[in-house]
Design a protein around this nucleic acid. Sequence first.
DNA 1: TCAAACTTTCAATAAAAATTGAAAGAATAT
DNA 2: ATATTCTTTCAATTTTTATTGAAAGTTTGA
Lengths: 172, 172
Amino acid sequence: MQLDEAKSKFIEGWGTLGSAWGVSRTMAQVHALLLVSVGSLSTEDIMEQLQISRGNVNLNVRALMDWGIVRKELRPGERREFFSAEKDIHRVATLILKERRKRELEPIMRVLGEISQVEATPTATPEETAAFTQMIGSIQNFAEFADKAASTLIKADENWFLSTFMKLMRPG
Amino acid sequence: MQLDEAKSKFIEGWGTLGSAWGVSRTMAQVHALLLVSVGSLSTEDIMEQLQISRGNVNLNVRALMDWGIVRKELRPGERREFFSAEKDIHRVATLILKERRKRELEPIMRVLGEISQVEATPTATPEETAAFTQMIGSIQNFAEFADKAASTLIKADENWFLSTFMKLMRPG
DNA sequence: TCAAACTTTCAATAAAAATTGAAAGAATAT
DNA sequence: ATATTCTTTCAATTTTTATTGAAAGTTTGA
């Protein structure tokens, strides 16, 4: 397979994966393109390679910068902006986890906290109320567990990466 | 807060969370409704409580059954079907992880495997090709790591649940 | 200060996804 | 065999989300 074809397949696959996880296809594709590009790309480069409009590129590179996984790069003597992706995939994962935790875990935890203080009323049987409280409690517990697990995971991943890196540095 | 209000807030919150993770809002809401309902619900119950059409209910309960987190329940002497959600949240998480692994991890792994055999051509510099191969390799490694971590996590979670359960069973 | 070279914004438009509802299909009882 | 009750399907529609492109905004150099 040729490099260009391989890049296209990656961009397509990454886009599909993204949209399955609630990231817009184009945003994931811009990310993919920057991941497999050696230097940094200008808005026009991205427009051309993905066949999308200027506004769309601008929107998506800014979103990617909000996630902390794409950086703006300024070249001396050039007025226009260039963009490059964080290439360390472990850092990418960490940054995405942190951001999703803030955007999605925290809001649902707040809701769960609020509704866990449901009071017994004549409208609802005590059994119903108890069952509800128990379900919410177990979801809260699980969310806490998942949150801690994710933190541990990030650390484990860093260690794993480090040890792999060390092995590479000291082969044989 | 009253039970009804709390249930509504949960359904809304779960729906929002779902759509952030690539699950349709309505599907997540049907799941949420079943999670906080004590018995099992009929199609009409769901239609009424979520104010959605019959076809929509049918589509979404079947999708939830595909995920293995909702079951069809038949009551003796009743012709219509009733639905209930898996209430053990750890099992829910396990089932969702398994399904997403199959649906999303496996396809992207296949693509990564294919494109990792990119060959050097006159069109692309060796540096470009090498950089690409390295990036794909690190994504493959990471995906494998994440996959193993998820399996471990599920087991850890089961143990955690078991130990919590044991404590509850032997209090004081 | 002005012009040139960019970036950003946003109303209009297009595309994608979700939803409806009625008709067709199944299963069960009489 | 027919009626009844419920489930499933799917073309049409609605809603939501993404995209465009041109105008407005910004920065830099002369």
